[in-house]
Design a protein around this nucleic acid. Structure first.
Lengths: 142, 142
DNA sequence: TTATACATTATAATTATTCTAAACTATTGA
DNA sequence: TCAATAGTTTAGAATAATTATAATGTATAA
């Protein structure tokens, strides 16, 4: 149960009350070895199954957005169908497998962050993201 | 009116009948000097105004997707709000101004296409895109 | 010029997401 | 400890982008 205390602290430090739902979401998202990629729907389904009771979709949206705004989750833009989120908030890039709709993290050994030679607008750069879409050949590109 | 013939040929070569609506869409999209970025809604509004008559949203969707599938337009993933399209189908990258929701093309002088050192999935690479999100400082990141 | 296959359209349906307002709960401080 | 309150959850409604439908219209090939 020390994990639970850890999540409680985390939530408190974000100014969020540690509710049952939020602790469960933390557990599903952050109590794992590897980076986790998900859509809101995936996550809501996961949690409902694990809790053996419904969690409101609105709660999942609220919480995920709260985590995103606090920097504990990253949103990845792949297509306009739905939003993907990533528990790895460090600067990194992605492969997107169009056959399976799976998102895969890239390390520096796979691709390096491109250098921006000119910041044409002079505004603050919030993110630089590379997305590599792949599919088995003869597959229709999306 | 030679432009019109050009578009007629273009459409024919794609296996699409040159209808009034499609010719108008071609004119709006391709009869210009610079790359054009748009959302479906922008485009439909533009066209309705220029034609002084409604064009069905469904037609715009159909046509834009037909063009995209034939490689005459590129779809750019920015967020899940809506889809952006680009008349520049060459390999290039983008700045996205979060203050104005504007998309700006990057040339090689601004950023170079990152090298992929390992194709981790071994599948065909359909696209490699860099998206740089910018905003005036103290702006909330999206 | 007519048959046919393809297009357009208005509208309904679908899907992801956000909003709302009522019921609920964690926290604070008396 | 307990009530006040401020923040949360929830179901369901609302919204917005996109896709499907089915009837009507039109380009084209014979």
């Amino acid at each position: 149960m020390s994990k639970n205390l850890e999540f409680t602290d985390k939530l408190r430090s974000l100014g969020l009350r540690p509710t049952r739902q939020r602790l469960k979401i933390c557990e599903v998202l952050f109590d794992r070895d590897k980076t986790f990629h998900f859509t809101i729907n995936d996550l809501a389904k996961d949690i409902s199954e694990q809790l053996n009771e419904k969690i409101s979709l609105a709660t999942v949206y609220n919480t995920v957005h709260a985590f995103k705004n606090k920097g504990y989750l990253k949103e990845i833009s792949i297509n306009s169908d739905k939003s993907y989120f990533d528990t790895n908030t460090t600067n990194h890039h992605h492969f997107f497998d169009q056959d399976t709709n799976e998102l895969i993290d890239c390390t520096d050994e796979v691709i390096e962050t491109p250098k921006i030679k000119k910041n044409i607008l002079g505004k603050k750069i919030n993110s630089v993201e590379v997305l590599i879409k792949v599919a088995t050949d003869n597959q229709n590109q999306k």
